[in-house]
Design a protein around this nucleic acid. Structure first.
Length: 422
RNA sequence: GGAAGGGUGGCCGAGAGGUUUAAGGCGUCGGUCUCGAAAACCGAUUUACGGGAAACCGUAACGUGGGUUCAAAUCCCACCUCUUCCGCCA
């Protein structure tokens, strides 16, 4: 949610910033609703002030033993008038809020202009990309040979997009999750194991709702949502709190399964592990002082990059352009790994600074110089496993028909150096 | 799932329709005293929205949302949540 003062005081600047994103948002409607809400609020406050002083007069009259019946009768109609305006004011407030929740965040000034993912800026590339001539077995073929996963049976149980990991595949999945968490904890992050079903309020706090409800799995009887990312429960841990400024930045990491309906996104990149309804991810979440948040964003990105280097996977870093920026993000880096058989870059992490966009929705503040101010929230995948698995198998497949394990993963396999056929 | 009892400021805790401007205590900050500190004493100590150049003024908030009333922390209803007990259960 945007700070209303921004568009009240300088609507043209907000309009220009929103326009950089490309997608239309009706700022004029928001301004109109804001105006309406404030006008009714002022009228209501005046009427209530009138009633308060009338009530006080009645109290005094009664205390001194006088007859208040006439005064009470006179004040009664004021009550009806207040109720009427109150209803209008409530409706105006609700209209304003519904629209305000649909307004995306403003991009940071440093974010490059652009219309789509084609305009994202490559800021860094690491590792060696094999020549395009050379052909590689893809992850499905490797997985089949080594019996690492079973898509058919997964589909039988739940439908497509719900893979089963089997044998060494399951172990590799678990090893990756543990490696990620262990690395973050060693770097000073606090590990969280959060609820994986969350309330509507939590989903609204981080910005998944109300706009993206059709992409979420919902348990209707209880109005709970399966988490699409650990960002939701971990960020909302501090909803409604005033944090100790001295404790910032707070750095958390959490593993959860992630559930996404991916409504409307079928058709492209849906083979194998490339797009799933359920997948595993370790997420990093930070709460920062406003003036420190962009420094924290760089650190978050570096934290993700280090995982990729240790897994010995070639990767690149993209700075997303204004047109590709997520709904709540002010600035975002994507990490992509190279999959040699797919001959594609695969997104495995998104590191975003939301500034106070989520903090405003979820009411997360810190007392800064005596004043409670909204903190900045950040999050980044560190990392999501399915596409890591694709790149991992394709990059580390050996001529012997085995998958070589980088040294950092070997402790999770009792020292084993490679994964062979069962 | 059933029963009972709770939810009040940063914290503890009183208040049971109008002298609440939420007592009292703790904590925190400032001051007096002191070489300095402690103690004691004095004072201050929520937030949001609206108006105003400012001083300040108005409104709201006692778990949440409704209702009754001229007037609600206080009465009524629903819900959330905590504690205890019972039932079920990994």
């Amino acid at each position: 949610m945007l700070d209303p003062k921004l568009y009240r005081e300088d609507p043209e600047q907000v309009r220009a910033a929103l326009l950089r994103r490309g997608k239309g948002f009706d700022l004029d409607a928001l301004l109109r609703l804001d105006q309406e809400k404030r006008a009714l609020g002022a009228e209501l406050d005046g009427l209530k002030a009138e009633r308060n002083s009338a009530s006080e007069a009645i109290a005094q009259l009664k205390r001194s033993g006088g007859d208040a019946a006439a005064a009470i009768e006179k004040t009664r109609s004021l009550g009806n008038r207040i109720k009427e305006i109150q209803d209008k004011a409530d409706a105006a407030e609700e209209n304003w809020r519904s629209l305000a929740l649909l307004c995306p965040n403003l991009p940071h000034a440093s974010v490059p202009d652009g219309k789509s993912s084609a305009d994202n800026k490559v800021v860094k590339t690491w590792g060696e990309i094999p020549s395009a001539e050379k052909s590689f077995p893809d992850h499905l073929e490797i997985g089949a040979k080594l019996k690492l996963f079973d898509f058919e049976r997964g589909a039988k149980i739940s439908g497509r997009g719900f893979p089963i990991y089997t044998g060494m595949g399951a172990r590799l999945e678990r090893a990756l999750i543990n490696f990620f968490l262990d690395f973050h904890v060693a770097s000073g992050f606090t590990e969280i194991s959060p609820p994986q079903l969350v309330s509507r309020a939590s989903m609204t706090g981080t910005g998944q709702l109300p706009k993206f409800e059709e992409d979420m799995y919902r348990c209707g009887d209880d109005d709970l949502f399966l988490v699409p990312t650990a960002e939701v429960p971990v960020t909302n841990m501090h909803a409604g709190e005033i944090l100790d400024a001295a404790s910032l930045p707070l750095s958390y990491c959490a593993y959860t399964a992630c559930f996404r309906r991916e409504a409307g996104s079928w058709g492209a990149d849906t083979r194998g592990f490339l797009r799933l309804h359920q997948f595993d991810k370790v997420e990093m979440v930070k709460f920062s002082l406003p003036e420190k948040s962009y420094g924290e964003l760089e650190k978050l990105r570096e934290q993700g990059e280090e995982l990729l280097r240790r897994l010995e996977l070639p990767y690149r870093v993209l700075e997303l352009c204004t047109g590709d920026l997520g709904f709540g993000a002010a600035k975002c880096y994507d990490l992509e790994v190279w999959a040699p058989a797919e001959k594609k870059w695969l997104e495995v992490s998104s590191c975003s600074n939301f500034e106070d966009f989520q903090a405003r929705r979820a009411d997360i503040r810190a007392k800064i110089q005596g004043k409670p101010l909204f903190v900045h929230t950040l999050n980044g995948s560190g990392l999501a496993t399915p596409r890591i698995l694709v790149a991992f198998l394709e990059n580390h497949y050996t001529e012997k028909g085995t998958v070589r394990l980088p040294t950092v993963l070997r402790p999770y396999f009792g020292g084993l150096e490679e994964i062979g056929p069962p």
